[in-house]
Lab assay of single mutants.
Amino acid sequence: SIEEEIKKAEEAKEKGKTFIHGDFVATTEELLDELLKRLRKKL
């Protein structure tokens, strides 16, 4: 679910890890923020 993806992305951000969502690879905090923004729009 979208909620689960958001939670996983937030955890990755806290730990400074890379998060992959489909073909979107978030390797930096900026990219994770962008991904979180996109996911929240889908809610």
Rank of each mutant, 00 (worst) to 15 (best):
E30V: 07
E4C: 15
K8M: 11
V25H: 12
E4L: 10
G22P: 06
A26G: 03
E14F: 12
V25R: 03
E10D: 03
A9R: 04
K17D: 10
S1M: 10
E4H: 08
A12Y: 04
T27I: 09
K37E: 11
T18F: 12
T28G: 07
L31M: 14
G22V: 09
R40A: 01
F19V: 05
K37Q: 12
K37D: 07
L36I: 14
L32K: 00
G16I: 08
K41L: 13
E11K: 05
T27E: 11
E34F: 13
A12Q: 02
L43H: 04
E5D: 11
K7H: 08
L35E: 00
L32F: 14
D23P: 07
D23Y: 12
L31N: 03
I20M: 07
E30Q: 09
E29Y: 10
R40I: 04
K7Q: 11
E5Y: 14
K17P: 04
R40V: 03
L36Y: 02
L39M: 07
D23L: 12
T28S: 09
E4D: 12
S1L: 11
T28I: 12
D23G: 10
E30D: 10
E14A: 14
E4I: 08
L43R: 09
K7R: 14
L39K: 00
S1N: 10
A12D: 04
R38L: 15
L43S: 01
A26C: 11
K13R: 12
E10Q: 10
L36F: 04
K17W: 15
K8A: 10
E14N: 10
E30P: 02
E5A: 15
E4G: 05
K8Y: 04
I6G: 03
K17M: 14
K41H: 10
E4F: 07
K17F: 15
A26K: 01
E4V: 06
F19T: 04
E4R: 08
L35G: 00
R40W: 11
G22L: 10
I2D: 03
R40D: 00
F19S: 02
S1Q: 08
L32V: 02
E34S: 05
K17N: 12
R38T: 09
R40T: 01
L39H: 00
S1T: 12
K8T: 03
G16A: 02
T27D: 15
G22H: 07
I2L: 13
R40L: 08
E14R: 14
G16F: 10
H21A: 06
E3M: 13
K15M: 12
H21Q: 08
E29V: 14
K37N: 10
D23W: 14
L32R: 00
V25Y: 11
E29M: 14
K7G: 05
K15T: 12
K15C: 15
D23A: 11
L31Q: 15
T27S: 14
E3S: 08
E10N: 07
L43C: 12
E14K: 14
E29W: 15
E5F: 14
I2A: 04
T18I: 14
E34V: 06
T28D: 05
E5G: 06
K37R: 14
E5K: 08
E3H: 09
E10T: 08
E14D: 09
R40H: 02
T18W: 15
T18Y: 12
I2K: 03
E5R: 09
A12I: 04
D23M: 11
H21W: 15
T28H: 01
E11Y: 10
L39E: 00
L39Q: 00
K7D: 02
E29Q: 13
D23S: 12
I6W: 02
S1W: 15
V25I: 13
T18E: 09
R40P: 00
E11S: 06
F19D: 03
E3R: 10
D33W: 13
A26D: 02
K15L: 13
K7M: 10
I6V: 04
F19H: 06
T28R: 01
I6K: 02
K13W: 09
T18D: 07
E29G: 12
D33G: 05
D33P: 00
E11G: 03
K7P: 02
E34W: 15
I6A: 02
G16S: 07
A9V: 14
K7S: 06
L35A: 01
L31I: 06
L39D: 00
L32G: 01
V25Q: 08
I2T: 04
F19K: 05
H21I: 08
A12F: 03
K37S: 11
I20L: 05
K8P: 01
I20G: 02
I6H: 02
A9T: 03
K7F: 07
D33L: 11
H21L: 12
V25N: 07
S1H: 09
K15N: 12
K17A: 11
E14L: 14
E4Q: 09
V25P: 03
V25C: 15
E29K: 14
T18H: 09
E30S: 09
I2S: 05
K7N: 07
K8S: 06
L31W: 07
K15Y: 09
E34D: 05
L31A: 11
F19P: 02
L32T: 01
L31T: 06
R38M: 15
F19G: 04
K41F: 06
T27H: 13
K42P: 01
K7L: 09
A26E: 01
E11C: 14
E30K: 11
L35C: 13
F24T: 05
E11V: 07
K41D: 09
A26W: 11
E14C: 15
E34G: 04
K37H: 08
K8H: 06
E11W: 10
E3P: 05
R38V: 12
T27Y: 14
E3D: 07
L36A: 01
L36V: 05
L35S: 00
L35Q: 01
E5S: 12
K7A: 12
E30A: 13
K8I: 04
I6L: 08
E11A: 10
T18K: 09
L35M: 03
E34Q: 10
K41Q: 13
L31F: 05
E4K: 07
G22N: 07
A26H: 01
K42H: 09
T28E: 03
A9W: 06
K15D: 04
K42R: 12
